[in-house]
Amino acid sequence: MFKWLDPYAKPQTLFNLLGRWQRVLMPLGWLLLAIGTVWGLGFTPPDYQQGDSYRIIHIHVPAAIWSMGAYSSMAIAAFIALVWQIKVAQWAIGAMAPIGAVFTAIALWTGAAWGEPMWGTWWVWDARLTSELILLFLYLGVIALQNAFSEQATGDKAAAVLALVGVVNLPIIHYSVEWWNTLHQGATITKFAKPSIDPSMLWPLLICIVALGVLFGALVCQRLRTSILRHEQHRPWVRQWAQEQA
């Protein structure tokens, strides 16, 4: 495990690698998002029950999935940071938290805009919505904790511990649908064997999910690169990089 991680743990190597990934992932993510949303908005038949309002699904579901995916990746990074004491993993938490928070906010917001025409209310205190809101609070807590210390290294480590503790919340989010039987409709595509969604509607949704995932990766690369530079700014390789840039 450590052997596999080792090259990625070296900030300079990772910095160059991230730059290469970002150059591929960023355009790919935006392109896929454009394809998915245009397809989903214009070229799928309307839902027989919900009419055209269901098209919100193409941004709502991917954002909800990746809000949790971002938290899981943050927790994995926290685990790596705490167990193997790899600094880059700590910095990755700081790079992922704002992105995850925005994804969560998007999921909440689009959910509200979908709920208003469908359920007749912007907000219901239903389990899944509430858990998503808690997830947003967890993100905000991680961000606040990370920035609260005069010593940045302490903040990074504390945020790692909090991210790992908060990951206990993720299963609660996931299983809350089954625990509490409320207004929220069941998950749409968790059962891949027998999806309750028509294939012609499924493809743009899948593309959007992949797009937001790719975009998440690209944005993390972007932020992590800056974070690496900031933490390593007194190293010779950063000076060299700056001179090459100028």
Binding site: L140, G141, A144, L145, A158, V165
Partner: peptide
């Protein structure tokens, strides 16, 4: 105790503690 330990050397102790730990209380 976890919240207090995490925010021990932070500058804005009190309100930060609430922000960090209240979401964990919700369940």
């Amino acid at each position: 105790a976890l919240g207090a330990a995490l925010t021990l050397s932070a500058e804005k102790g009190g309100i930060l503690l609430a922000l960090v730990i209240l979401p964990l209380y919700i369940p």
